[in-house]
């Protein structure tokens, strides 16, 4: 049985279709990523899974329980970290944790050992007397995660947990997620950062209320059917203008000091040399570029 089973789920606000009929299964123990830009419908889907919103159509089941039927049952086994969740800034780390422990009725006997476990990965113990508002962005995220984990949930739902956090803290946060997953917890995480897709077991690419693809990040990139090259040139603007005119070209995109071009088919070495000549040596070098999830995404939303 899948931990989360979504069948033809629809939800709209007024005339806006936030989520427009999606099907999705999240397996037990996997780290599943919902990848998509702001406004794609990620938050709506997550809130519905957490029983905070009701589906307009279709059904969502969490561990076999319907989100409209068994609300207390679902809430008891779910850990949820809302988007831009900022905790109680004026309470200390310890007070925040204790508050959520009270709220989720973590028995006093287990509490100390649970806090120790959480401190182990969050490394927040030395700061437990500090007000949450005085923590760095990365530490705040870890505290928020700890609060969501306090009652040892079976499924963890995280809505853009790495928003606005610096890259080092982001990396550390993902390492923590991997260790939680290793303990058997199912994790559903959303992000607007395409590069985080590679850190998930499986991902759904989400755009304007629809799922464009579901697979492992590796398979998604492997199936990208337009050979991609990275070019170096003396004048990138002219080089880009040149390739925009070539027949069989799929996309051209400047990236700082290089140009990415993709074609409908693979290009031979002799073809490249011909282009080098034709550009009067403006094209300096070319090499195959691995497509990123962003390339895949871009292609799917076209």
């Amino acid at each position: 049985m899948n931990d989360i089973e979504i069948i033809n789920f629809k939800k709209s606000y007024g005339d806006v279709n936030a989520v427009n009929g999606i099907n999705l299964q999240v397996k037990k123990g996997e780290l599943f990523g919902l990848i998509g830009p702001d406004g794609a419908g990620k938050t709506t889907l997550m809130r519905t899974i957490c029983t905070l919103l009701l589906p307009d159509a279709g059904s969502i089941q969490v561990k076999g329980m319907d989100v409209t039927q068994n609300i207390p049952g679902i809430r008891a086994l779910l850990g949820y970290m809302p988007q831009r969740f900022s905790l109680y800034q004026d309470l200390t780390v310890e007070q925040n944790l204790n508050f959520f422990a009270d709220l989720f009725q973590v028995p006093q006997s287990n509490r100390e050992s649970r806090l120790q476990q959480l401190f182990q990965f969050s490394k927040l113990e030395p700061f437990k007397k500090r007000a949450a508002g005085d923590l760095s962005g990365g530490m705040k995220q870890k505290l928020a995660l700890s609060c969501a984990l306090i009652h040892t949930p079976e499924i963890l739902v995280l809505d853009e947990p790495t928003f606005g956090v610096d890259p080092v803290s982001r990396q550390e946060f993902w390492e923590i997620l991997h260790s939680i997953r290793a303990e058997g917890t199912t994790i559903l995480v959303s992000t607007a950062y395409m590069d985080e897709a590679d850190l998930c077991d499986r991902v759904a690419l989400f755009f304007s209320g629809q799922i464009k693809a579901v697979d492992t990040p590796l398979a998604l990139r492997k199936n990208f059917k337009f050979p991609l090259y990275r070019l170096q040139g003396k004048n990138l603007r002219q080089l880009r203008d040149f390739f925009d005119q070539i027949s069989g070209i799929h996309t051209t995109q400047t990236f700082g000091d290089s140009l990415h071009v993709s074609f409908s088919g693979k290009q031979s070495e002799s073809q490249w040399q011909a282009w080098q000549k034709k550009t009067g040596g403006n094209l300096v070098s070319w090499q195959v570029q691995e497509p990123s999830i962003e390339d895949v995404f871009l292609d799917l939303i076209k």
Binding site: R47, T51, L52, R75, Y80, P82, R84, F100, L103, F104
Partner: peptide, 10 residues
């Protein structure tokens, strides 16, 4: 956003 977090508790 803290209310959202409280609401998902029992």
């Amino acid at each position: 956003g803290t209310l959202e977090q409280i609401l998902v508790s029992p």
